[in-house]
Amino acid sequence: MKPRTKRAVAIVGGLAALGVAAALVLNAFQSNLVFFFTPTQVAKNEVPKDRTFRMGGLVEPGSLVRQKDALTVNFKITDGAQSIPVVYTGILPDLFKEGKGVVAQGKVHGDGIFKASEVLAKHDENYMPPEAAEALKQAGHPMAKENFAGQGQSGAKPR
């Protein structure tokens, strides 16, 4: 390449990279900073109307029901204060479990049921072997924060 072409390519490349970075930042600030809403926000109608949004929380223990077709599931997403019923048809991620974190994308329909088109599992930041997890459970701490050196947040709970 001639030096001049090389320079032009470099300038265009640099501007393109900056443009993409700026676009990503702006896009994030516009809509995606709120990656998900909590069931309380959904119950209070503080969510976007007429478009899909994400709802995050814990899968309420005891709420999971699998339909006969084996692909459709009903469960509730809770944040402790409110819980919203969800229906979803499709493959669930491996880490999807009752009592664990979940983020579902979809829309609330007239009957108050959140119809999800995508379900993602949200796991926490605790890493330990099964024996240690079992010991914590036995001691009455379901992965309780107090057992660790004081990490500020629980990953499973929506903040």
Binding site: L33, F35, G56, D124, E125, F148, A149, G150, G152, P158
Partner: peptide, 19 residues
Amino acid sequence: WWNTLHQGSSVSFKGTSMH
């Protein structure tokens, strides 16, 4: 600062939540 799908830090200045 925000709701993310990514979990929190396992290692921070305050301590750790790892084996």
